[in-house]
């Protein structure tokens, strides 16, 4: 029996987990920061010095950026899984990250500054989104299969373009390109946009959460129960695409958060989107914060791309879930 009290309790626990993971991430690093400096950096008290600078200028933005991207990806994944009625869907399945990848590669090839990379990546993501939407809409049917196939093909095309750019790119630019493609938070120095996007997109999707529950059971059933199916599906597609575009623009295509987190949360708390969407956002954010902390501390001072770590965690978890499900 879905109940509001249980939902609030679970969300409070996940909120606590998010705060703890951020706290941990803030203390981890080559420089030991005293708790007085930490509090000062967060605005609780007076203080100055290198510790405060490191927290305010480096760790806090990165932690917030990681949290926002993880939350956006998990939210987008949860929405895509309902939209396609397929538990194996993820935010990238419809080619949005592919489009962003092409944009970012072009920007890196041209040697554009960070703003240019982000701008072109976002433009690529939106371009892919519009392309898939337009093509899948062609005959007006807009079925799950048609949408999925169109998205997969567009993603494959973008993958080919990315490979093409990689193969002609000069040696000196390859490392930056590869890091972008694997997902990398070291460039995420301006987390405000991603945080605002997370809050806004979550707030926009929650009013439709119960309708999403019905959509997950089938389009005709949902329609018979009073859901304006076409309108709601377009809205979810738009929200999920925007969430993915913002996350990918901020941190590159970080894998598996969007696939595994909604899954894990669904297993733990059930498939009620009213709880699942905010819970997945909190859990996804926490996971990415922890993964990024590991990425920058495991072999410090060298940094690993965080996408590699999420995939390394994600693959075995996902295989385990699949093996359990088939029983």
């Amino acid at each position: 029996m879905p109940s509001r009290r249980r939902a609030y309790l679970i969300l409070a626990l996940l909120g606590l987990l998010a705060l703890l993971s951020m706290g941990l991430a803030m203390t981890a690093g080559s420089l030991q920061v005293s708790s007085a400096d930490m509090l000062a950096a967060l605005g609780f008290g007076e203080g100055s010095g290198v510790g405060v600078e490191v927290i305010r200028g480096l760790r806090l933005p990165r932690v917030l950026g990681a949290f926002a991207c993880g939350g956006l990806l998990a939210l987008a994944g949860g929405l895509m899984q309902v939209l396609l009625r397929n538990p194996l869907a993820d935010p990238y399945v419809l080619g949005i990250s592919g489009g962003a990848g092409v944009g970012a590669m072009v920007a890196l090839l041209l040697g554009l500054p960070l703003l240019g990379i982000n701008g072109l990546a976002f433009a690529g993501a939106i371009g892919a989104m519009l392309l898939v939407f337009g093509l899948a809409h062609g005959d007006g049917s807009w079925t799950q299969t048609r949408l999925l196939l169109t998205g997969v093909i567009v993603a494959a095309g973008c993958g080919a373009l990315v490979a093409l750019i990689l193969s002609v790119a000069p040696e000196s630019k390859l490392r930056g390109m590869l890091f972008w493609l694997m997902g990398d938070l070291s460039q995420a120095i301006e987390p405000t946009l991603a945080l605002v996007a997370l809050g806004l997109l979550l707030a926009l999707s929650l009013p439709f959460a119960r309708e999403l529950n019905l959509l997950a059971r089938g389009q005709m059933q949902a329609q018979a129960l009073g859901v304006a199916v076409t309108r709601v599906r377009r809205l979810i597609y738009l929200l999920a695409s925007l969430a993915t575009a913002v996350a990918v623009t901020t941190a590159g295509s970080i894998g598996f958060v969007g696939l595994v987190v909604p899954h894990l949360v669904r297993l733990a708390v059930g498939n009620d989107q009213r709880l699942l969407l905010p819970a997945a956002a909190l859990a996804g954010g926490s996971l990415l914060v922890l993964a990024d902390t590991a990425a920058r501390t495991l072999i410090a001072p060298q940094q690993l791309p965080v996408g590699v770590l999420t995939a390394l965690i994600g693959v075995p978890v996902f295989l385990f879930l699949l093996a359990r499900q088939s029983k």
Partner: peptide, 28 residues
């Protein structure tokens, strides 16, 4: 939807759900 209910021919459940939750969908 408040006045007529429709039963389709196939019931497919891609996601796990309890019997009670499934039936409660009718209250939407």
């Amino acid at each position: 939807a408040r006045q007529r209910a429709w039963l389709g021919q196939v019931q497919i459940d891609p996601f796990a759900s309890t019997v009670l939750e499934t039936v409660l969908a009718g209250r939407h």
